[in-house]
């Protein structure tokens, strides 16, 4: 009985995860500029993959511990890589979407490039 409840909870969690993975990809596809895309991509895919992993751990007995470790590793590294991408692409000269206001980061980048 407990297996049954945990298993179907896992199925629902995997459904949620897969749906958010899809939403992340849709956000990548639809949103207008790089930073907004990065926002959708990071948040939705992180929740998606974490929820999928935990769901699979609940369905298959005995996998939960490793899947939790995997989920924690993903939660730790995904924001870091998206931060690195955002910072790098601003410095590589990607212009933000034209409605971006205010742009306080531009001052810092300009100041740093003037110093060189």
């Amino acid at each position: 009985m407990v297996d049954l409840i945990l298993g179907w909870t896992g199925v629902v969690l995997v459904f949620i995860g897969v749906f958010f993975l899809f939403l992340g990809a849709l956000g990548i596809f639809r949103l207008p500029d790089l930073f907004n895309r990065l926002q959708a991509g990071t948040k939705a895919t992180t929740l998606g993959v974490v929820s999928t992993t935990i769901g699979v751990g609940l369905i298959a007995k005995g996998w939960l511990v490793f899947s939790l470790a995997l989920a924690i590793f993903l939660l730790m590294t995904n924001p870091i890589s998206s931060h690195a991408l955002g910072r790098a692409s601003y410095r590589a000269g990607v212009k933000p979407y034209k409605g971006t206001n205010p742009d306080l980061y531009a001052e810092k980048v300009k100041k740093e490039s003037d110093q060189k």
Partner: peptide, 14 residues
């Protein structure tokens, strides 16, 4: 360009 503090700490723990 030096990497930021987030990348420094993050890669160290990873």
């Amino acid at each position: 360009i030096a990497p930021s503090e987030i990348m420094y700490v993050g890669t160290r723990i990873a």
